[in-house]
């Protein structure tokens, strides 16, 4: 079950659609009864926020144009929003042109990111963000 380009595209497309659905669910006022509905297992079990807690709130701030609020809530939100905007366009372009540029980019990125010189600073950043999340009490 090696990751082929088709599988990756289906996975990213599904993830993006679920992401947009989740965003709509959180923004839409018709679901206010479910405003206490949370999905983070770590936060529900331990009451400590996880590294990506606050991403939804951050993306919602971004949709309202509050860039600094988004960064303050969770810097991950900017990254997630960028992926959610770029990935579907890239997939459509690849499908139309019958190319696999996104898949090759993904494979190259995977190889670069695993190098200790890059991986260690990234892990430290994630941990710092986690500490910041706990300090903020998200």
């Amino acid at each position: 079950m090696a990751l082929t380009s088709n599988k990756l595209y289906v996975l990213i497309a599904t993830a993006c659609s679920v992401g947009y659905g989740w965003l709509f669910f959180n923004i839409s006022e018709s679901f206010t009864d479910f405003s206490n509905f949370r999905v983070c297992l770590i936060k529900e079990v331990t009451r400590i926020p996880c590294p990506s807690c606050g991403t939804t709130r951050g993306v919602i701030s971004l949709t309202k144009g509050h860039f600094l609020d988004a960064i303050y809530t969770n810097p991950f939100s900017v990254l997630v929003a960028a992926i959610m905007i770029i990935a579907p366009i890239w997939i459509v372009l690849d499908v139309v042109k019958k190319k696999t540029t996104l898949f090759h980019f993904y494979q190259r990125a995977e190889k670069i990111i695993i190098k200790p010189k890059i991986a260690i600073p990234l892990i430290v950043l994630v941990l710092l963000n986690w500490i910041w999340n706990i300090a903020k009490g998200l």
């Binding site: 990751l3 993830a15 297992l41 996880c50 990506s52």
Partner: peptide, 27 residues
Amino acid sequence: QLGIDRFMIGDTGLGVGKLLTCGGLGI
């Protein structure tokens, strides 16, 4: 939820995906 399982088996990309999305909303 942090994607560490995926990182360990070498699926770095999916690991990052899991980390950023809070384990794919837990699902």
